[in-house]
Design a protein around this nucleic acid. Structure first.
Length: 240
DNA sequence: AAGGTAGACAACCGCCGAAAG
DNA sequence: ACTTTCGGCGGTTGTCTACCT
């Protein structure tokens, strides 16, 4: 079915160039797209003068060259949205990205992997070093972790008692918690989130440990639900 | 100062569904 | 109705850099 495209994707069979893009290639691609518009990526690869497969061109444009892309670290607001939407939809990176204007699915995916998937490692290293220092390579060393899992290390979930935030009736949004196309791929659902959804919690605040002291901003479900009502038009949703 | 390690990011790979022929 | 082509997506890998020992 998709064998030819897959061959194209693999690149080398047709002699497509691979590896990091050069500034010259970026300019060729940008010039071509500015002239002809996005789409028809196979044509881009043929006529732009680039020796890159269509997929590679598309990826480069979408993730790096496209106008309007935000550079730099994600804001606490964006981080909160990622956490919340991942809890709802799992690894639907492209769907999550639609709610973060200027951010790409690749960027969000990488962010999640580095910030939430691998946070246990420092403690594993700590345990290993302890073991090595004690000559206990073959013995388990208990290292106290600040949270029960890697996700919780970066996220503190609280039930708002702040009267400034109106209470949200979760029964109003039950349908929206369903991912756009099933949730079989749900990689991780934070237990506290699940509890919140079951217990009609009024609000969830997210923040990293560093941000607890420095950042007063929080993401409320109100913000997120507001965007969900316009799920077909992500740009009309979250505004800041 | 040097080597090792982890983090951050860019890019590739393979699969899938939709559209076109 | 079937096949082919294409674009998009998620997972994975590669590379560079900063930090740690």
């Amino acid at each position: 079915m998709s064998s030819l495209m897959d061959l194209e994707g693999s690149g080398s069979e047709q002699g497509w160039r691979k590896g990091p893009w050069t500034p010259e290639e970026d300019k060729l691609l940008s010039d071509y797209i500015n002239l002809h518009g996005e789409g028809r990526w196979s044509s881009v690869s043929k006529y732009s003068g680039l020796n890159r497969c269509g997929k590679s061109c598309r990826l480069r444009w979408v993730n790096y060259l496209r106008p309007g892309l935000k550079k730099g670290n994600l804001t606490p607001q964006e981080e909160g949205i990622i956490i919340e939407l991942h809890a709802l939809w799992g690894n639907k990176w492209s769907t999550i990205a639609r709610y973060l204007p200027g951010r790409t699915d690749n960027e969000i995916k990488n962010y999640w992997r580095t910030h939430f998937k691998t946070k246990a490692k420092p403690y594993q290293r700590q345990a290993k070093r302890k073991a090595e220092a004690l000559g206990l390579e073959n013995h388990q060393v208990q290292v106290q972790q600040p949270a029960e899992n890697d996700h919780q290390m970066k996220m503190d979930t609280t039930v708002a008692r702040d009267n400034d935030h109106r209470e949200v009736n979760t029964s109003e949004k039950v349908d929206i918690t369903t991912p756009p196309q099933g949730n079989q791929e749900m990689g991780f659902v934070h237990p506290s989130l699940t509890n919140h959804h079951q217990s009609s919690s009024p609000m969830i605040n997210y923040y990293t440990s560093q941000e607890i002291a420095s950042c007063p901003d929080t993401i409320t479900l109100d913000d997120l639900w507001g965007s969900f009502w316009n799920i077909d038009d992500p740009h009309s949703g979250i505004r800041w």
